[in-house]
């Protein structure tokens, strides 16, 4: 019986898996989708905690962009700048923690004083 063995190089060329099929663009598009979801949530939500969730989505999109650019362009910067991407991501995570703590303190104070966290009922400073 004659066994048919496919040529490895032919199959790789056909499936285009010989080199990385995932470019920088894949990560950037995912980050753009996350950013747009966060933007829509910030604009459309009335609950203050929902707005905070949208801000977290935007910050995560920024983190993903930093790490993707670091991964695909990191060979350009050697030496003391070799870890720029992860360092910026760490700073963003720390500042997100600060922001979440302060924003929740503000939200809880709003609930003490107004009895609700709906942003369009808390509007004394409008006009």
């Amino acid at each position: 019986m004659n066994e048919v063995v496919p040529n490895v190089a032919d199959v790789q060329t056909f499936l285009k898996f010989g080199e990385s099929p995932l470019g920088l663009e894949a990560y950037l598009i995912v980050a753009a989708i996350l950013f747009c979801f966060g933007l829509a949530a910030c604009a459309a939500r009335r609950n203050a905690i929902g707005i905070l969730i949208g801000i977290e989505l935007i910050l995560n999109a920024a983190n993903l962009n930093f790490l993707a650019f670091w991964r695909f362009h990191g060979s350009v910067s050697e030496g003391i700048n070799a870890y720029d991407g992860p360092m910026f991501t760490m700073f963003i995570i720390v500042l997100a923690a600060c922001e979440a703590a302060v924003a929740l303190a503000i939200v809880i104070n709003l609930f003490y004083t107004h009895g609700t966290v709906e942003t369009d009922t808390v509007s004394e400073m409008r006009n």
């Binding site: 203050a48 905690i49 969730i53 977290e56 995560n60 995570i93 997100a96 979440a100 929740l104 809880i108």
Partner: peptide
Amino acid sequence: IYVGGILVLLMFGVLLT
């Protein structure tokens, strides 16, 4: 940090408000 810290803060925010 995110799952163990910020998300728990958000849950407490939902709980308290």
